[in-house]
C-alpha cells in the first residue's frame, strides 16, 4: 500500500510529537517508512497504527543509543485522571499552549497526540502503546498538573471553563 500525502503528514506529526524537532522527525519518518516498505502488512486498515509502532520502537531505540530516557517510568501509586475528557475542560490560548507543549515529555506528548489528534480513549491509547490503562491515565493527570503549573507561573487563575481567562 502506497502512503498518500495525508497519511504521511499524519505520521510526520506523530514523529514530531516524539522528537519535537522537524529534521529529527523527518529522519525518523524516513526510517520507519523504509522499514514498512521492506516488510509491509496486508491489512490496509492497520497500516497507520503499524507504522506508528515502528516509529515508536525506532524512537526508543534511538533514545537508548543516545543514552537518554525517552519514556520515564510512572509510579503505580501516582494519582490518575478519571478519563481523557479532563483535558478538554482546560481553556487555553495559543501562546500558553506552546509553553505547555514544551514542558511535556515524550510519553506525555504521545498521549496528548493520540488523545487530541486521533481521538483515542485511554483504553485505545493503552492498546496502541502497549502500556497499562492506569499508566495512560497517570500521564493525562500529569499533563493537567503541568498545565496548572504553567498557569501558576503565568499568574493565571484556573477554574472549570474559565481557565486562561484574564
Amino acid at each position: 500500500m502506497t502512503l498518500n500525502k495525508q497519511q504521511l503528514d499524519q505520521l510526520y506529526r506523530y514523529c514530531y510529537v516524539l522528537t519535537t524537532d522537524c529534521d529529527n522527525a523527518y529522519d525518523l519518518l524516513q526510517t520507519a517508512v523504509q522499514k514498512y516498505l521492506e516488510k509491509p502488512i496486508r491489512q490496509s486498515a492497520a497500516t497507520l497504527p503499524y507504522i506508528r509502532k515502528i516509529i515508536r520502537n525506532q524512537f526508543i531505540d534511538d533514545a537508548r543509543q543516545a543514552k537518554c530516557i525517552a519514556f520515564e517510568p510512572i509510579e503505580n501509586t501516582e494519582t490518575i485522571a478519571l478519563d481523557t475528557m479532563t483535558l478538554d475542560n482546560i481553556l487555553i490560548n495559543e501562546e500558553l499552549a506552546n509553553i505547555v507543549w514544551s514542558v511535556l515529555d515524550a510519553a506525555e506528548r504521545e498521549t496528548m497526540y493520540l488523545c487530541s489528534i486521533e481521538g483515542y480513549t485511554a483504553a485505545e491509547i493503552s492498546a496502541e502503546t502497549n502500556v497499562p490503562r492506569g499508566t495512560v491515565l497517570s500521564r493525562i493527570y500529569r499533563i493537567r498538573h503541568k498545565v496548572m503549573q504553567v498557569f501558576d507561573q503565568q499568574g493565571i487563575s484556573m477554574g472549570r471553563n474559565k481557565v486562561g481567562e484574564e
Binding site: 478538554d88 487555553i92 499552549a97 489528534i117
Partner: peptide, 11 residues
Amino acid sequence: KKTFNHSVKEY
C-alpha cells in the same frame, strides 16, 4: 481561548 485539546490539534 480554546480548549487545550483543540489548541494542541491546531498546533
